[in-house]
């Protein structure tokens, strides 16, 4: 039942060592090495910002309205930046997490190894990058927007985000190792998930005037957006750094997230235990 936790006991140091190793593997051989960790997301962010401000010409300001209450106007750039920083961690830890066992197959088929720590150190490596990017973001936010007590919520959202996506990989990594089709499915879905999540727009306030069966679509859509856990973190970072609001000011969103978290952990434990012993045979 708690095999995953047992496997982690006494492996802290090793996880750290392997996470470091993972980063070296990703950025080795490049002249500016670790700077790629910044350049890639910075360029992606620039491209989206460019498309919005020059291409569609609708960058301007983002008017943030939550539950009908006007919060503030934000420059599109800072609004996108604060959503992007958690998104980079999320997208990387989902795709890398899903691939992790297959990539590290030697630890499964050649030696007796606590397999679940593979997913942990893969995500820890992404977490290092996230913290690095976060510091850059925070410096910008501090100058452009200011510092506040609400910023402390980072210490809630960040560990929670790490835990949630590690637990998700307990399911996705063994399933991807078992079937390459499953891995491809995850990666295909991920490229679209970005647009379905409130990274570059505000998922609390969906601007739609459509009617469905005579009822406005807006509240339904806004509820549906809460089912996406990625929004919980993108909104969470914005609560902490832009909106100056506390996490408990959104009880429904919080409850939905916590239920999903419990589900993901339970599914993860189930899938990992179910597939762990067949992994050496199929890899």
């Amino acid at each position: 039942m708690f095999q995953i936790f047992k496997e982690h006991k006494g492996f802290g140091k090793q996880i750290f060592l392997l996470a470091k190793n993972e980063l070296i593997k990703t950025y080795k051989g490049a002249v500016i090495g670790p700077f790629w960790a910044v350049i890639k997301p910075a360029f992606t962010l620039f491209v989206y910002w460019f498309a919005f401000s020059v291409g569609i010409r609708s960058a301007g300001n983002v008017e943030v309205i939550i539950n009908g209450e006007f919060i503030a106007n934000f420059d599109r750039f800072i609004f996108m930046l604060v959503g992007f920083i958690p998104w980079f961690f999320i997208s990387e830890s989902i795709t890398q997490g899903a691939k992790s066992i297959r990539i590290n197959r030697q630890f499964v088929t050649k030696v007796s190894f606590p397999v679940s720590t593979i997913m942990t150190y893969t995500s820890v490596a992404r977490l290092f990058v996230h913290l690095f990017l976060f510091v850059i973001m925070y410096v910008y936010v501090a100058f452009a927007h200011g510092v506040s007590i609400y910023n402390l919520q980072f210490f809630l959202y960040c560990p929670l985000m790490f835990a949630f996506f590690v637990a998700l990989s307990w399911s996705t990594a063994p399933m991807s190792a078992f079937s390459a089709d499953f891995e491809n499915m995850i990666i295909s879905i991920m490229s679209g998930i970005f647009w379905l999540s409130g990274i570059i727009y505000n998922s609390y306030n969906m601007e739609v005037d459509l009617l469905v069966f005579g009822k406005p679509l807006k509240p339904i859509l806004e509820f549906a957006m809460m089912l996406n856990p990625i929004n919980f973190f993108a909104n969470g970072y914005r609560n902490a750094f832009l909106y100056d609001r506390w996490f408990f000011e959104y009880p429904l969103e919080l409850i939905i997230f916590l239920v999903e978290f419990v589900l993901v952990v339970a599914l993860g434990i189930y899938n990992y235990n179910r597939l762990r012993k067949t992994l050496p045979d199929v890899l």
Binding site: K13, Q14, N21
Partner: peptide, 22 residues
Amino acid sequence: ELTAGFSMEMTGRENIYLKGYI
């Protein structure tokens, strides 16, 4: 499989520890 479980990017010394932990 003598070379199983080695991490190519780590030094030989680090690999001794890695293997030891395993």
